[in-house]
């Protein structure tokens, strides 16, 4: 075994890349759940975003347009969920699971002509001097824009929920939709918007996998990332910064265990492969032991009866 082959700088830089898909999907789902909706279709929206982004990027040659299309695709698919749960009053758990299955099927249909193609490369940030700094340059200033966008989005969501009136209303809707309705807030409209935001974020996360992290298109390539994002939100106690910590932890252990495998560590590969899941869940369970709890109306169907 040769641990010296592992470069800590590259390790940190690549964990940020590995964490970005679940970070984006997780922060979107956090907003959805704070509005009181449980959308289990994250996986389906991610893979739909992955193929939409991939296809548009390949056809236009622009990764930026690809990401925009991915957000649009995810949001569009989530609109289906919104219609089912907010207007047809369908069960949220069943609708979410259906959305995942539908998304997986739809994406393999859309992606039939794109197997084996390489997408246009997404540029990394390259700031003269700063990017060339030793150690910090590669970690802080050497990523593609989506990595920074993910971090900025966490900060924005945190500030939105904590300091803005719209954020307060969103939390109120998630706490008690009946009380919010009695005060005259448009529960359904607010929830539909939150669901679409969650869909767009999941789509971006998916496209990040197909355009940057892998980068190519294969069926079912999100491989459970959506489920990790869902678990992340719960174990993060619905707090934005904890989603970031959890995502980086998961990304970090994933990258580390790959490095350890390459270095020939004498532990069976299966144990190393399961380690990111185990460690992330363990740490977040310990963190979530405080008093915070789920939004009170989470997963409940709202119907404005007289």
């Amino acid at each position: 075994m040769d641990l010296s082959a592992i470069n800590p700088v590259l390790l940190i830089a690549s964990l940020m890349v590995a964490a970005t898909p679940i970070l984006l999907a997780g922060i979107g789902e956090l907003v959805v759940e704070r509005a009181g909706v449980l959308n289990l279709g994250v996986e389906g929206m991610m893979i739909t975003g992955a193929i939409c982004g991939f296809a548009i990027a390949v056809n236009t040659g622009s990764p930026a347009l690809g990401f925009v299309a991915a957000a649009g695709g995810g949001a569009l698919l989530s609109l289906l969920f919104a219609l089912l749960t907010q207007y047809a009053l369908a069960n949220q758990v069943a609708s979410g699971l259906a959305l995942t299955l539908f998304g997986l099927g739809l994406s393999s249909l859309l992606g039939q002509g794109y197997v084996g193609i390489k997408p246009p490369p997404t540029d990394r940030l390259d700031i003269p001097v700063l990017t060339d700094l030793p150690v910090v340059g590669r970690i802080l200033f050497g990523h593609d824009l989506m990595v920074y966008f993910g971090i900025a989005l966490v900060a924005l969501v945190w500030a939105f929920l904590k300091y803005t009136r719209a954020g307060l209303i969103l939390r109120a809707v998630g706490e008690s939709h009946d009380a919010a309705h009695a005060l005259g807030y448009k529960v359904k409209r607010i929830r539909v918007m939150a669901i679409m935001f969650g869909g767009a974020c999941a789509g971006l996360g998916g496209a990040y996998i197909s355009l940057v992290r892998v980068p190519q298109w294969t069926e079912g390539m999100t491989a459970g990332a959506g489920w990790i994002a869902l678990a992340l939100v719960v174990f993060a106690s619905w707090k934005p910064w904890r989603v970031l910590i959890g995502a980086y932890l998961f990304g970090g252990v994933t990258v580390l265990q790959l490095n350890l495998q390459a270095a020939g560590l004498a532990i069976p590969v299966e144990y190393l492969s399961m380690s990111p899941y185990l460690i992330t869940i363990l740490v977040l369970v310990i963190m979530s032991a405080d008093k915070s709890r789920a939004p009170a109306s989470l997963g409940r169907i709202f119907h404005a009866s007289q």
Partner: peptide, 30 residues
């Protein structure tokens, strides 16, 4: 309700229209 409130009508509900997890000031702001 916003229109009624703007016209000077306020209402105290029988079943409280409050949000348990929010604080007093946030509830009032809503």
């Amino acid at each position: 309700p916003q229109a009624a409130r703007a016209a000077g009508v306020a209402m105290v509900f029988q079943h409280f229209s409050l949000f348990d997890a929010l604080n007093v000031a946030e509830n009032i702001a809503l």
